[in-house]
Amino acid sequence: MHPEKIVFTYQGDGDLASIGAAEIIHAANRNENITVIFVNNAIYGMTGGQMAPTTLPNQVTTTTPLGREIITGAPIKMSEMIATMDHIAYVERCMAADGPSIMKTKRAIRKAFECQINQEGFSMVEVLSSCNIGWKMSPVDSLTYIKNTMTQTFPLGVFKERKHETNH
């Protein structure tokens, strides 16, 4: 509606990787000139800690009380999946686990918005984040869990960078 305005979405993994999975894939495939901030905390936080598509193997949630088993699916890697689309602008996975990683996330988000401002098309930054209440951990342990455990399933890095060619 307002092509001159900056547009972004802020989406959880329950949203982006589950009920909204079809929509995000098609928004990316249309190379919509928007920025997606994808907050992946491997759980449905707002509704009280149920399994998400990104929940790690063996992770205990309120709907996987014995730990997540493969019969419920494996953690979906949305950044890798979306990065298979050649024409989109930018996809990076970061984490919010300590000072340096948060600074790095900030730079990635800035870059994603720059892509949008430069009319390069779809950009997404996935941020591995904590949900210490849902995970039933202390805030400090949650940050360690992001660094040591989540990154094993969700490796950090840039998955797509189409380097400043204007799309339109």
Binding site: G14, I19, M46, T47, G48, Q50, T62, T63, P65
Partner: peptide
Amino acid sequence: GYPITPQNELIE
């Protein structure tokens, strides 16, 4: 099922 308040304890 699918989570949504106020029926979450049902699916849990």
